Simulated assay, not measured.
Amino acid sequence: MGRDRHRGPDRTLTGVEHVEDAEIPSEPAGVAQPRPQSLVLAFFGNHILEEGGRCVYSGSIIDVLGRVGVGEQAVRSTLTRMVGRGLLRRQRQGRRMYFGLTPQAVRILRDGGRRIWQDGAVNEDWDGTWTLLGFSLPDSWQRQRHDLRSKLIWYGFGALFSGLWIAPGRVDVSGVIAELDLAARIKVFHATADETTTDIDRMVQESWDLEAIAARYAAFDKRWTALEATDGHTGDPIATRLLLVTEWLGIIRTDPRLPARHLPAEWPARAAQETFRRIAAETQEPARRVAGELLDTVPEEPDDGTP
């Protein structure tokens, strides 16, 4: 079967599934261990999202993820799980199986692109408002508590007190509350702090683990600038870009984007973001060319509802 390629603009990079993986990473700073699902989503965000209704051959996905050390069986298992989770859809053509994005995955990827390119890692334009979310859940609701905490971390909340979480800016959590069916047990307020009685710098330090956040940015910047200095990022641009984007979004998805004026001087997110965007720009066209030669894609057929 011949390849049917269609290359579109490459502006949105990727997103990640924030339902399953929203916990703050537990691995040591400086160690990049991206999960296969995050890599698959990054692959689709890099090369399929802006294609406009395309599906990609499973063998192409296996080939690209193999370049970053993910084995064929792990890729196949991940694709199957992602179909079950409603993130991907299958499409058979002859003896080949192709995979395309579901509307849910498209939303996740576009949200990731917004966080990368529009929001960024440095919050310079904070307007002084906070979103406060209070909840009261029975002790036996451990799963609901975990799910709510994971969602709140994704949306940039930190624990102000037990049962009271806070995030900078006006955060719309109505979708989270509805999804978890917790409307009767959650109250949300938008407010400003009384700075005559509230030390905001101290509040930020107590509600978020600034040292851990800063360490992840510093480790990212150190590792990728060192790779760039040795031209180690140019050998396989499609693999480099896949790892770069996956790791970067893994960091910023757990960054609450706290107001820059309430963070320590020389906050490392700024330098890390400059490094990320520089290497992303350097690898964009080379990765696009490799993808054009490597990926077997076909037009997406109407979904008949079959999983």
Rank of each mutant, 00 (worst) to 15 (best):
R3D: 02
H6M: 15
H18P: 01
E20V: 03
P25D: 06
V31Y: 08
A32N: 07
A32T: 02
Q33E: 13
L39Q: 08
E50L: 05
E51F: 06
C55L: 04
V56E: 00
S58K: 01
G59Q: 06
V64C: 00
V70S: 13
G71N: 12
Q73E: 02
A74T: 13
R76I: 09
S77G: 11
V83R: 03
V83Y: 07
G84A: 03
R89P: 02
R89W: 00
Q93S: 05
R95Y: 05
M97H: 15
G100N: 09
L101N: 02
P103A: 02
R107W: 01
R107G: 02
G112P: 08
R115V: 03
I116T: 13
W117K: 08
V122L: 13
N123W: 00
D125E: 10
L132R: 04
S136W: 07
D139I: 06
Q144G: 07
R145G: 11
S150Q: 12
L152P: 12
G156R: 06
L160V: 10
S162R: 12
G163D: 11
L164P: 02
A167S: 14
G169Y: 00
G169I: 00
D172C: 03
E179D: 12
D181Q: 15
A184Q: 14
R185I: 09
R185Q: 04
K187Y: 01
T192Y: 00
T192F: 01
D199H: 04
I200H: 03
E206H: 07
S207M: 02
D209S: 11
L210D: 09
E211G: 09
A214P: 14
A215I: 04
D221H: 14
D221A: 12
E228L: 13
T230I: 07
T234P: 01
P237G: 03
I238P: 02
R241T: 05
L242N: 03
G250Q: 02
I251T: 01
I251R: 09
I252R: 06
R253S: 09
D255L: 03
A260P: 02
R261C: 00
H262R: 10
P264H: 04
P268K: 14
P268S: 11
A271Y: 01
A272E: 09
Q273S: 05
F276L: 12
R277S: 15
L294G: 00
V298N: 05
T306Y: 10
